[in-house]
C-alpha cells in the first residue's frame, strides 16, 4: 500500500520567535527551520510500516516556495521514497492546504495519509480533518498508537483525548493525524542524505492541480503576545504561604 505523508517547514521548536516590527510576519533572520516535529513523527510511522512490510511506497508532500525542497530532502533522507512539492508562495490557510493536498491525493491514490496533528507555527490543528472531509474518507486524529488491520482495509488507532485515550478502527483510505507519543523519529544518517540526492522531487503548481488556493482566513497583523513580568523570589515556604494568603488572596 502507498502512504502519503504531509510535510511542513516550520521554525525549529527551540528557536525564540520574534515578531517583525511592521507586524507583517515573524523575523526569519537567524531562525533555523525544520520539518514540523509532528510531521516527522508521521513520517517515522510510515517508515516503520514500510519496514514491517505493511507499505510499498512513501510519498512525502510539501506545499511551499523553493525553500520547501530542503524540508522534502530531509524527509527523503529519513526514508521516504519520493516527494511532491506544490509550489506556492502566497500565504495559505488549512482550508487552502487541504484543497491542494486533496488534489495531490486524487492523483496519488494513497491508502493511508499520515500527517501531524498540528504545525507548531500556526497551531491550527485543522488540515488533516479538512482533508479527510474533502476526500470523503474517514479520519483518526491525535493518534499515539497505530496498527494496520490484517487485510489492510482498516487501521486501529489509539487517540489521545482530553479525558484519556480512545481506540477506534477507521476504514482505509483514511487520514491519520499523529500525536507526540506515537514514536520517536529517527535521526537522518549520512547514508540517508546520500540516498536522498537520487530520489525524485516532482514539482507542481496549484494551477496544474486545478485548485484555486485562495485562503478563507487572512492574517492582518502579528504582535508579540503580552508577556508576564517576573514576580518576586520568596525565601521560605512560610513567606510563600503568607503572600499567597495576604497578597494574592488565593489560598
Amino acid at each position: 500500500m502507498k502512504i502519503l505523508v504531509a510535510a511542513k517547514r516550520v521554525p525549529d521548536p527551540d528557536t525564540r520567535i520574534r515578531v517583525r516590527s511592521d507586524g507583517a510576519g515573524i523575523a526569519t533572520e537567524g531562525v533555523r527551520f525544520a520539518l514540523n516535529p509532528f510531521d516527522a513523527i508521521a513520517l517515522e510511522a510510515a517508515i516503520r510500516l514500510k519496514e514491517q512490510g505493511g507499505a510499498s511506497e512513501i510519498v512525502v508532500v510539501g506545499i511551499d516556495a523553493e525553500t520547501g525542497v530542503e524540508t522534502l530532502r530531509a524527509g527523503l533522507a529519513m526514508g521516504a521514497d519520493r516527494a511532491v512539492l506544490v509550489r506556492e508562495v502566497a500565504p495559505l490557510d488549512p482550508f487552502a492546504v487541504a484543497k491542494l493536498l486533496a488534489a495531490v491525493c486524487r492523483r496519488e491514490q494513497p491508502q493511508l495519509i499520515l500527517m501531524g496533528k498540528q504545525a507548531i507555527d500556526d497551531d491550527c490543528n485543522q488540515t488533516g480533518q479538512m482533508l479527510a472531509a474533502r476526500l470523503g474518507i474517514g479520519q483518526a486524529t491525535f493518534v499515539s498508537r497505530l496498527d494496520l488491520g490484517p487485510d489492510q482495509s482498516t487501521a486501529r488507532c489509539g487517540r489521545e483525548t482530553d479525558s484519556g485515550t480512545e481506540t477506534v478502527t477507521v476504514t482505509l483510505p483514511a487520514v491519520v493525524t499523529v500525536d507526540l507519543r506515537l514514536n520517536e523519529p529517527r535521526y537522518v544518517t549520512a547514508l540517508g542524505i546520500l540516498r536522498a540526492k537520487k530520489k525524485p522531487i516532482q514539482e507542481v503548481t496549484p494551477a496544474e492541480l486545478g485548485v484555486d488556493p485562495t485562503p478563507r482566513t487572512r492574517l492582518l497583523h502579528l504582535a508579540p503576545a503580552p508577556r508576564r513580568k517576573a514576580g518576586v523570589r520568596v525565601q521560605s515556604v512560610d513567606e510563600l504561604l503568607a503572600r499567597l494568603r495576604d497578597e494574592a488572596r488565593v489560598v
Binding site: D93, P94, F95, A98, C124, N125, Q126, T127, G128, Q129, M130, L131, A132, A133, R134, Q139, T141, F142, R159, E160, T161, D162, P215, R216, T217
Partner: peptide, 19 residues
C-alpha cells in the same frame, strides 16, 4: 478541546468553509 478540534474542521470542510 480534542472533541471540537476533531469535529469542527471536518464540518467546516464539508461546507467549504474556513476556520
Amino acid at each position: 478541546s480534542t472533541y471540537s478540534k476533531d469535529v469542527l474542521p471536518r464540518a467546516a470542510a464539508l461546507l467549504d468553509a474556513g476556520m
